[in-house]
Amino acid sequence: MRAPALAVAAALLLGGCTLLAPPRPEPAREVLDELPKQIPSERRHTAALFVLPPEAGPAYDTIRIAYRERPYQLGYFRDHEWAEPPAQMIKTLLIETLKRTGAFRSVLTEPDFASPTYTLRTEILELVQDYTRSPPVARLALRLELLAPTGRPLASREITREQPMQAATPYAGVAATNHALAGALAEAASFVLDHTR
């Protein structure tokens, strides 16, 4: 009769220690919001463009910020997170960039549809802070595929950008990722304009 009572008391003491431990600080929320400084532009306003939400593999379809210290290994920062999933932020920036080209009658995304229109598919292949190099770099790789109004693939391109980081810190990595993404968006706009003339 006494042994069970002692076991329950010990469990409560251990759980109380755990529950009464001081809470960890909230992780810092980072965003991707840098647009290209120079966006290619054409005054056509003839076609509509439908931008599908960017797709990402499970490794990058998360708000956790990935880093790499050793080849073939991926880690996530403890105290830094993306404010939104990167695919969502990249979609917003991509639509804004394509709108600013002035080449399209409208740039749409889900749930708005327009037909006939061109369609742009985007896949995030890599979005990582690479600490295996010195100085470390932020690396971004995107795959773009443009579809004709009939649904037939028109063209595809892989865009890879590396931006050296100013310091070996998560925030410096986020800043470098923003620069790399701005360059990738300008290249993506050129690619779309070249194949929708």
Binding site: G15, T18, E69, Y76, R78, D79, A167, A168, T169, P170
Partner: peptide, 13 residues
């Protein structure tokens, strides 16, 4: 579920 998980600190953390 009770104790939670702890991530190791990343570079610069």
């Amino acid at each position: 579920l009770v104790s939670g998980t702890t991530l190791p600190p990343g570079p610069g953390e």
